[in-house]
Write a protein that binds this DNA or RNA. Structure first.
Lengths: 204, 204
DNA sequence: GTGGCGATGTATCGTAGCGATACATCGGGC
DNA sequence: GCCCGATGTATCGCTACGATACATCGCCAC
């Protein structure tokens, strides 16, 4: 998962580790706590040996007119390679069971803007299916509750069930939006008004 | 976290690994996917060497009149020791930063019935504080959104923010319930009617 | 009666990711 | 002149996961 996320961010612009971590936490803040350096640096190392990214000595400030936003004291700046971009596209389109779990889904969703419309739909539907399974599990647990669950465990299940139901509804809306060719944030369906170009971007 | 959860379940009754995993998944299903055997067995091993639990050869069926609920083909049955029970109480009352993260909070909450009222309140308040921090992080991200976040990332943040707001409200209710000396599931505040004995149970 | 199959059951291996920690530099306030 | 907090790179030990292997049991179809 980290591999995909890192490649995705470096796809947008080269960065050093510290900045990468900050961006990662902003982009994925809604789904996971915080990426640890104990994960980040080893992964960066691996990505280098695999040839997906390269390491460059961070220039202090090559051009005084253009203060490089994220290279202050500049040490190591990581940059994605052409192979890395291909790798990124491959990972984006590769849907395993992991894709529909919390972390996997979150990362994939965070890069939906670079994902083609078909894949987006498949991911949303897979996620919905996964959450529906979870929901059923909790419903079962609650209905068999009086047997063995205490009031607190039961309350936890109820809260979990509620969260699942909400997420399913959220996904339904997103799926509907996708099918209509719009993007989240575009106005609600006020008729077939200018849906603004293709939904698949292919930068690079 | 697993250590606490396992001790908690074995506190209720001896079990073998398979059954333990099932109960674990029921009890914690609302907060985490599924405990893997790759976590479970090594942890059981560790708990044994530390002396918190003991291993017993699973009797096939010692008493035909009392079919042992969970020992079918019986292999290894794990049982908590007296030291293990103390250890469990210690872990229950030990509040680190981890206690307020998703997994930690879930496990602690799942055993609230065995936690004393003061600790319960401290945990709920700590969790609320933690979620409020997360919520603020997302609010920040959303308000600085136009700068760099695409429509999908933004939508993810919105959904995360919504989830945080709901959890805070849920926690507020639980805190209010705690302060009034009730348990979740007891009727709403219809006056000071029979609050049913002490809220702290001390089994064993 | 036997063959297969799904549930029960124990166990290990490789790997991802976390939390703590160490250390170094930079800018600014006192 | 000095300390402190933000920036920045990096490793270590540990927890836990996911895949996999393997064995037994009960049951149903053939």
């Amino acid at each position: 998962m980290l591999e995909l996320a890192i490649l995705g961010l470096l796809h947008e612009s080269p960065m050093h580790g510290y900045e990468l971590r900050k961006q990662l936490n902003t982009k994925l803040g809604a789904i996971r706590a915080a990426i640890s350096y104990g994960s980040l640096y080893p992964t960066l190392r691996r990505l280098q040996t695999d040839g997906w990214i390269t390491e460059e000595p961070g220039a202090e400030s090559t051009d005084p007119g253009v203060p490089p936003l994220t290279t202050r004291r500049g040490r190591v700046v990581y940059k994605i390679t052409a192979e890395g971009k291909e790798r990124f596209q491959t990972l984006l389109a590769e849907l395993g069971p992991e894709t529909f779990e919390d972390a996997g889904f979150g990362v994939h969703f965070a890069f939906f803007a670079r994902t083609d419309a078909d894949t987006r739909l498949r991911i949303l539907e897979g996620r919905r299916r996964r959450i529906e399974e979870r929901r059923e599990g909790m419903r079962q647990a609650i209905s068999r509750a009086a047997e063995r669950l205490d009031a607190y465990t039961l309350e936890l299940q109820r809260h979990g069930l509620d969260a699942c139901e909400r997420e399913v509804r959220w996904l339904e809306e997103l799926i509907a939006t996708e099918r209509s060719g719009r993007q989240p944030g575009d106005g609600p369906p006020t008729g077939p008004a200018a849906p603004a170009a293709g939904s698949t971007r292919h930068p690079g």
